[in-house]
Nucleic acid binder design. Structure first.
Lengths: 114, 114
DNA sequence: CGGGATCCGAAAGGATACTG
DNA sequence: CAGTATCCTTTCGGATCCCG
């Protein structure tokens, strides 16, 4: 069958999106933020199994991507807060259907993975 | 801030979903299938930049996950057709919002990626 | 608390060549 | 056409230690 001429463009786009938000831990971190995680320790507790290093790396990435905003509170000791930007919240919103699909079907697909 | 007790579970789930469908090329291949690609050459043409090897690997993965069905047509030469399963179509459906988000915002985030 | 620096093994994935 | 096989580089990410 012949695919439409714009199909390659669509493929590029989905790939770009998934290459950025589909990396390991990124989605989980965003979800954690949407559920109220704000400080480094919050994320560490909320995202199961993540290491300090990867959390640090991913937080910086998501900040660079404009999905999280990093805020420094000049208290003693200093507090760092992360919260979703408008763009991040929008992304979280469109990710919701994907998560619900996972809840429903993750057992089916993971049963097929060995 | 305190996150809900089920937040870690949610994080696990989103991570599992993204770990399976978020791998390189997987999303693009699914989209190609949704746009009419059926045969190996179709996918090769429709997914820009993919190699034969990765296409082969991913097709097999997606088949194992139950997202694509592989059908052998005993003609000469033999034809192999891939098409989305019901599960695959459902996944594609929930991926749509994500793609549209990418269309709208990919320039913003990629501008921040250097 | 909120990370950064370094090291290192594992895994992913690209290039190329080959096949029935 | 529809892949495999092999090789080889790059990247990922875990462990550990350290810092202000």
């Amino acid at each position: 069958m012949k695919t439409p001429d714009n199909a390659p463009t669509e493929c590029r786009q989905v790939q770009s999106v998934l290459d950025t938000v589909g990396r390991r831990w990124s989605g989980a971190i965003l979800v954690a933020a949407s559920r109220g995680a704000r400080r480094f320790v919050d994320f560490r507790r909320t995202v199961p199994g993540i290491s300090d290093r990867m959390l640090s790396v991913r937080l910086k990435e998501l900040e660079t991507l404009g999905l999280l905003r990093r805020e420094v509170i000049p208290s003693t000791p200093v507090q760092i807060l992360y919260e979703p930007t408008a763009l991040g919240r929008e992304l979280l919103h469109v990710l919701q259907p994907l998560f619900r699909w996972g809840e429903k079907h993750l057992d089916e697909v993971s049963a097929a993975t060995p």
